[in-house]
Amino acid sequence: MITELLVAILLGLVVAAAVVAALARGILTTLAAFGAYSLGLAVVWLVFRAPDVALTEAAVGAGVTTALFLVVVARTIGFGVPQQQRQNSTPSSEFVDGDEATRVGDAGASEGTRLRTAVTGAVRQGRRRSVVVASLVTGGLLLTVPALPVVGAADTPGFGPVTEYYLTDSATRGIDNVVTAILVVYRGFDTFGEIAVVVTAVVAAVAVLNQGEER
């Protein structure tokens, strides 16, 4: 009972954080809400007794991803909009729905106003479209929820004979954390491929980021 209440509160927090992240005007607000979203999910995993996933979600989702986003935003469009400009021009140097951020504040007065209204209109339109798409995707996903098995149902694949084998065999091998045993001992080939993907990703990122940098 108390667990269900806790899960309900946590999921409510996660949904609220997701909505704030999607609709916030300031990029910094979006990033903070996104971090809160990941942290809420991490606690949900913890409640569902998946501490390994919780640790990953907290470290990657709430920690590192937020830091990477901060660095990228600081390098590209920046946070530096004075408070006054922010109040009379709604979306100036904010990054919404992939629209190109325009430094409206730097432009001349009349030109700036025209540009500002254009950007505001584009953002509004894009925002409405994204709200529709997000609602459709959410509705479609919610339709699949009744097909999911009940949490802890005995006839799910998670309780098959292979699980028994993993639990007993990893204990005889001397590995107490079954998750690690599955990742490295039983499914080592998959993990090998996974780490190759991680290395390839950074090689590609470094190759792309080094382009155009005179060294």
Binding site: P51, D52, T56, A59, V60, N177, A181
Partner: peptide, 12 residues
């Protein structure tokens, strides 16, 4: 191998 975590988590 003996408690929560592992390479991915520790590395991050």
């Amino acid at each position: 191998t003996s408690s929560v975590g592992g390479g991915f988590q520790g590395g991050v």
